[in-house]
Write a protein that binds this DNA or RNA. Sequence first.
DNA 1: AGAACTATAGGACATAGACCCATAAATATC
DNA 2: GATATTTATGGGTCTATGTCCTATAGTTCT
Lengths: 107, 107
Amino acid sequence: MKKKEKFRSPIAEAMHETVRGMHRVGLVDKQTMREFDVRCLTSVEDLTAADIVAMREEAGVSQAVFARALNVTTDYVSKIERGAKRPSGSTLKLLSLMRRKGFEAIL
Amino acid sequence: MKKKEKFRSPIAEAMHETVRGMHRVGLVDKQTMREFDVRCLTSVEDLTAADIVAMREEAGVSQAVFARALNVTTDYVSKIERGAKRPSGSTLKLLSLMRRKGFEAIL
DNA sequence: AGAACTATAGGACATAGACCCATAAATATC
DNA sequence: GATATTTATGGGTCTATGTCCTATAGTTCT
C-alpha cells in the first residue's frame, strides 16, 4: 500500500486528525467530519494567466492537449493564457486541483 | 546551448513512442498516430441527471457540500440534478473524474 | 413553536466558453 | 529547399452555462 498524501500542510493534517479524534469519541458524526474536510480542502486559489501558462509548460504539453485534459476548447485555453478570458467555477477548481496534485491527477 | 528536445516531457515521449511502435506494426494509421497525444486524453463520459444524483448520494453529501467540491453554486447543482441545466466542459470533466476516482479525489 | 438545514422551483441576467475565420511562427515530412 | 502540419495569437459573434434572487416546503434539531 502506498502512502497517500491527502493534505498539503501539516497544519491541515493536524486539524483533520483533531476532528477525527472527536469523531472517535462521538463528539461529531461522520457527516460533520466529511463536511469539515470539504470546507478545509476545497479552497480554490485565484490563478493568473501567467500561472496557467507556467502550469501548462511545466506539464510539457501543448494548448491542445491541455485543453483536452480540461475538456474545453483549444482557443479558450489560448484566451485564458492571454488574459482575454477568466476561468471560473469548475474550470478554476480543475486548474487548482491540477496545481496541487499535478497534471496527471486530472487525467 | 540547450539540448534539443524532441518531446516536451518524458510522459509525452513515452506515449508517443508507444503509439509509434503500434504504427510500425500496422496497428494504427498515420492520422491516428499524429493526433494520439490529444485523443488519448479525451475520455469524458456523458452523465445524466440521475447519474449525478447517484454519485452525490453515494458520496453521502448534501448539494451544498457537493457544490463546494465542484466550486459551483448550490442551486446550480439542484438544477443539474433536476435536469433543468446540463453540465458541460470542465464541469463535466470534474464529474467524470469524480465518478472514476471517487469523491475524495477531487478535494 | 422556532431555528436551521435540506431540496425544489421560478425568473432575470451576465459572461464563460464554443465556434468562426485569418495570420504567422515554428516544426515535421518530403 | 519546398511543403505540410503543428503551434499559438487575435479578431468577432452567439448560445446557454452558471449566478443571483426569491419563495415554498419537508426534516430535524432544540
